[in-house]
Every structure is written in C-alpha cells, then in structure tokens.
Design a protein around this nucleic acid. Structure first.
Lengths: 208, 208
DNA sequence: TTAATTATATATCGATAGGTATAAAACTCG
DNA sequence: CGAGTTTTATACCTATCGATATATAATTAA
C-alpha cells in the first residue's frame, strides 16, 4: 500500500530483503490442517506438524507464531476452504434450498478422499486441556449458527417461512444435525448414509 | 462362589490379605470420568487424574492398569451410569416413544450440573493421536446405534413403523441428532434448546 | 510375634512435549 | 565485492508426559 504511494515507479511490492522462503505458507497450512483434523489439537505434536508441513521448527515458529496461532490460521483457512460451501449455501434463494445445500455439502465432504472425515470445528478441540483452544472452536461453531440464524430471519421476513416458525430454533436444529453428521462421518459413515440422514432431517422442515 | 462351597462356615468372602485399599474404586472412577469428559483422553494428564481421584500414581496403576485401561473402565461405568437412560428408552412400548425418551434423556443430561456437558463417547476421543482409543469410543458409539437399529427392526415387524420405513436409516438419523446434541451441549446449549431440537427432529419421524 | 501380602508415598525414570539459541545459507542493496 | 537481512538447519532447552522402583505402612495367616 504505502510503497505504491511513495514509489510510484512500480506497482509490485519491492523484492523481499533476506533469504527467500523455501516453502509455500498456504500449502504448509493445508498440510497442518490435515494433521489437526486427523488427530485433534492436542493429538497433533509439533513433530507431526513439521513432518507433514515439510518445514522445520524454526520456520514454523517464524511463519506462524506458535502451535496455537498456527491452529488459528488453520481454522481461518478451513473456513475459506473445505467449508466455504456453507457460506455459499446461505445465498440460495429459498430457506429450504439453503438447508438442502448445507446437508448435501456436509454429506459430500465426508466422501472426499483428499480430506479427513468429520469437521475440524468439532474434532479439532471439542474437549481439550487448553481452554482457550476449546473456546476458539466453540466460537467459530457459534458464528456459523448465527449466520444461519440471520438467514432464516430474513427468510421469515420474506414470507419464506411460516408465521409461527422460530428461526433460532430451526438454526439450532440444522446445526445440530450438521454436527451430528460430522461425528458420524468421523465414525466411518458414508456419503450416502449422510445424504439419507439429510433427507430425513429435511422432513422436519416447516411447510407453509 | 467357591469359598461358599468349600468353607461352609461363613457366607461372606474371606477378608483380603494385605493392607486394605484406602479408596473406593467406583468413586475414583467417577472422578476420573469427569476429567476425561471435560478434557478428553489426551487432555487428561495423569496428574489431573490422580489429583481428581485423590489417589497417587502407583495406586492408580495397581487398581486400573494404565491410562488407556482406566479409560476403558471409565467408559464401562459411563454406559451403566450417565447414559443408562438410553438402554431404558429402548424398552418403551412404541418406537416413537423410544425416540422421544432418547431425545429427552439427552437434553436432560446437558442440564445436570453434577456432570460435564456433552457426551463422553463423543468428546472423549473423537480425534486422537492414539488410534486405539479413537477406535474404542467409535465402537461404543456404533454399538449404541446397532441397539437402536435392532429395536426399530422389531418395531417394523410389529407394524409399529410404516412398511417403507428403513430401520437402519432411521437409527442413523436419530443417532446423528443425538450426537449433534452432544456437540451443541459441549458448546453451551441449554436443556430447553436441546429439548426443542428434539421436538423438531421428531417431526421427521414417519407416521403410519 | 513373625512372615507374608498388599497398598501407599516419595522420588524418579526415559521419552517426548512445545519452544529457542546459534550459526550457516541465500538473498538485496549499495 | 561486502554489509545487512531473513530463512534454514542443527542442536538443545526446560517442563511435562506416562509409567515405575523402592521403601514404608497396614493388614491377615500362622
């Protein structure tokens, strides 16, 4: 930003000064994500992480802070990556379509062989010795529910939900099912099984 | 048993030989359960455990084996204690009543101030560095689902479910909701919230 | 009372946890 | 080139992990 205003000569950032980084931070984050996803925050040791990320400890600390901060950056990337479908689902025109997409997207995830089963926000640190980490994931889970809640409030305003429908309750219900699907997926449930769970869960959706 | 046949003098077991144990193993297991429940298998250190159980390390190892075996015994006690309601629910006369009791029991648990939030079978070791522990809890979750599945099969035979109902799918759905409720509870959901989730989830139940 | 047995308490084990000090390597700037 | 800067690699730090060796205390059996 600043050098654009001062320099006025080139539009690109100046070449970095010291020895160039030999790894791609985003790729390293993806690898770290898999480890946390697979083993949970506490189950993922620094040795596990550096081996998977293919960097050594000082590089990890220089680039990402410490283990907890690394986990935070991994969570950021998780929201924008594997579960980006959630935000997109909220853009569906009808509330029922939103829910269908959320259930379908969740079921689809559990079938992707390139990622671990389940949901990082659930198995990452549901119970955890380090309270701050537990809080962090709980807050992100809560944020997702609030986003859905707002979307359902809008739906109600738009007459897309019955008058007596309660957006908060419905959002809580949908997120309960989604998180249950994550647990089931971690236990080995197939995509088809989860899709059928989604179909059944949809039968509880209010009709006008 | 045997001393009853041989001794014939007293009906009680012979007094144990050495120094008597100074703690109640079941009470110690209950305290260990709370620690595992709260922090997860890996988050619970031996120091956490012995402090809560009010015994020292050698006593723990002598009485319960090692950490993993202790966790196994805690799981046994968990099944017969906090979630005994599940087995009882299966005895309800009608399938719908079974499900209602399961949802209600789950919601009730999350309100009991004497126990941690959530479900030990979920947060104990959903993701875990030690694969054997993860497998152990997954197997116990699967066992609960199978028990419900059998109960629903019986319901179908008894005409208590529609002809086209699939007991396996329904059991999977119910257990998905139950586990989702456990995650929500660990995130701070109240009993009332969970009861309403159960009510909504019940709307998906097939009617004849 | 003595021997045998079992539990308790303390102190400690090797291994591994997360985290860093240090110095060599690879780059830019002047 | 050489000075300054940042990353990399190795080696190492302290704290804690799960687990035990050792010795003492408390009990029963003889």
């Amino acid at each position: 930003m600043i050098y654009l205003l001062i320099g006025m000569k080139s539009k690109t950032a100046p070449a970095p000064r010291g020895r160039p980084r030999a790894f791609d931070p985003d790729a390293a984050l993806d690898r770290a994500m898999h480890v946390f996803w697979d083993k949970g925050y506490e189950g993922a040791s620094l040795s596990d992480l550096t081996r998977a990320m293919r960097i050594n400890r000082p590089s990890l600390y220089a680039a990402f802070g410490n283990k907890e901060q690394l986990f935070g950056k991994v969570l950021d990337r998780y929201m924008d990556g594997p579960i980006a479908f959630f935000g997109k689902a909220l853009a569906a025109p009808k509330a029922r379509g939103v829910i269908e997409e959320i259930f379908l997207g969740t079921a689809r995830m559990s079938d992707d062989p390139t990622i671990p089963a389940g949901c990082l926000l659930v198995q990452g640190a549901l119970a955890c010795g380090e309270a701050s980490v537990r809080k962090e994931v709980a807050a992100r889970r809560a944020a997702a529910e609030v986003a859905l809640y707002r979307r359902l409030q809008r739906a109600k305003r738009e007459g897309d939900l019955p008058k007596n429908a309660d957006p908060a309750e419905l959002a809580h219900y949908v997120m309960t099912v989604v998180r249950g699907m994550a647990v089931q997926s971690a236990g080995g449930a197939s995509r088809d099984q989860l899709r059928r769970v989604g179909q059944i869960a949809l039968r509880a959706w209010p009709t006008r």
